[in-house]
Amino acid sequence: MKTIFKRPEALAETPTHYCPGCTHGVAHRLIAEVLDELGLRERTVGIVPVGCSVLAFNYFNFDCQEASHGRAPAVATGIKRGRPDLIVFTYQGDGDLASIGMAEIVHAANRGEKFTAVFINNAVYGMTGGQMAPTTMPGQVTTTCPAGRDVEQVGYPIRMCELLASLRTPGFVERVAVHQPKYIIKAKRALKKAFQYQADNRCFSFVECLSTCPTNWGLTPLKAVQWVDETMIPYYPVKNFKSPETEGEGDAD
């Protein structure tokens, strides 16, 4: 017998603290598989955020830095500028990246920092207990919008891929999902491209992963998967927004 699926080397054996059905684990595994397949593990530095994945340095089997809330892209910039030979990626949730860290991600993207940004969008603040995020869906109930997100009061959810793709510099911007096999296969392809572009010293790359949070959504893991399909994907289209191959197509000169 030949093993065709097992834990990648870049993923530590340590069990995660994530809730049952939380797709952080899938995103972790995909990153680890890609780093292994590209042979990058031994020169990778992962930047982990503040949020549910704050302890991700325990789950990855390579060097990591723990960033303060929202600042992972600045930390990654510092590493990548000082040590361009290292492979650097950021791993941030939606509160971290799209709220407190908005300036850092936009400017890192706009400078074309040659690291890979992985953005986990599950429409809620997870670690702090399910508060409203910039990506919370209209009408979605959270602990800080108990009557549902009121777009008259707090605006519509921010689409990060669309926002970053409006900038001229960023090379690779793609939204994927990690809740079902057909999406997971595409998510891995996108991540692999993103890291390959970095290894080739080509461009800044951004991969947004639509993810689940069964606990804070108040749904079973299976219902949460359905919620991504029915509620998130219609608002957050899963597709490539920009890649070096199609450079110029989206440019507004």
Partner: peptide
């Protein structure tokens, strides 16, 4: 050497964190 004007002092100080963490004198 590396010269980079960041988007804010918040970002700059975190760039220092990253670079110093990677062993770079900054």
């Amino acid at each position: 050497g590396v010269f980079l004007q960041g988007e804010s002092e918040v970002a700059v100080s975190n760039m220092l964190y990253g670079a110093a963490g990677a062993g770079v004198r900054c």
